[in-house]
């Protein structure tokens, strides 16, 4: 018995090593499940404040670009408003409740963002206090940015589209064929469109947009442009489509968040019919 104890005592450094590594791996795994509970991350207050101060400084130098982009977007919205604003008319039709707005939009600022790893995240400067909820879609005027994962009182963390765990339901704009966009973990400008069957004719230059199927993003938010189409090497039934992402992730500053107000109804429908609801 004494020998066993002595043996273990001699190995104590190694045992501690294994123990610490086990804790670390457990943290990684529990943090990586998309909706899993996590103890520490940058949505905690102290860390959020540090990151926010840092981005306050660096953001200052990008204000010029941000202003120009906002101005362009304002102009576009103005134009669209012109189209849709009600004409003075004597007749009035009450809209059906089916046309009720199902999406709500909010704005936030990115205070921390990474693009060099295989699992990238964005941290936003708004949290539960401002009505943010886990699961909201994140996008900006260029295209899809990611999906909200954790929300604290004042800050929130989202999974970036540049994360090998995130799939976004999408479609080719010209042919309405749908698939899933996935980032392969290499270049921050390139992604792949998966699950497009072989008979579909897709061409370089076609744009890819969100499909609206996943109930996270409304239909029609840009994701990327097709660069190359080739038969898939591992599965002969699918095409291998390379995308160039429209979002410039190195310059994501201000983002919009979108929430589907009917997602609970949709989720319960999915779970009742036992369908998996992919992101």
């Amino acid at each position: 018995m004494l020998r066993i104890l002595q043996f273990l005592y001699n190995l104590r450094a190694f045992i501690l090593f294994v123990f610490l590594e086990a804790i670390a791996v457990w943290l990684i795994v529990s943090n990586n499940s998309p909706q899993g509970a996590a103890f520490f991350n940058s949505s905690s207050k102290l860390i959020g404040i540090v990151l926010e101060t840092q981005s306050n400084v660096s953001e200052f130098f990008d204000l010029d670009d941000a202003n120009i982009i906002l101005q362009e977007e304002n102009a576009q919205l103005m134009e669209r408003l012109n189209f849709t604003s009600a004409q003075a008319d004597s007749s009035y039709i009450e809209l059906d409740s089916a046309f009720e707005a199902t999406f709500e939009f909010k704005g936030a600022r990115v205070i921390s963002n990474s693009l060099r790893f295989a699992q990238n995240h964005v941290t936003l400067n708004k949290g539960a206090k401002d009505g943010l909820k886990p699961g909201m879609g994140i996008f900006n005027q260029q295209g899809v940015v990611g999906r909200l994962k954790m929300v604290s009182e004042n800050f929130s963390v989202g999974i970036s589209l540049l994360n090998t765990d995130l799939l976004v339901s999408s479609k080719i704009k010209s042919s309405d064929v749908f698939g899933s966009v996935k980032w392969m973990g290499e270049d921050a400008k390139k992604a792949k469109l998966l699950y497009v069957p072989r008979h579909v004719t897709a061409q370089a230059g076609d744009s890819v947009i969100t499909s609206g199927f996943n109930a996270v993003f409304p239909e029609g938010i840009p994701i990327g442009v097709i660069r190359e189409v080739s038969p898939s090497s591992d599965n002969p039934n699918y095409l291998d489509i390379d995308l160039e992402l429209t979002t410039d992730f190195s310059k994501v500053g201000y983002v919009y968040l979108v929430e589907n107000t009917q997602i609970q109804e949709l989720d319960s429908l999915y779970s009742e019919s036992e369908l998996p609801n992919e992101f």
Partner: peptide, 18 residues
């Protein structure tokens, strides 16, 4: 906690220390 990669640096740094 700042890198948003909880556990990864910890695992690697412990390995270095070992």
């Amino acid at each position: 906690v700042f890198y948003e990669t909880i556990g990864m640096h910890a695992a690697a740094a412990t390995f270095l220390a070992f």
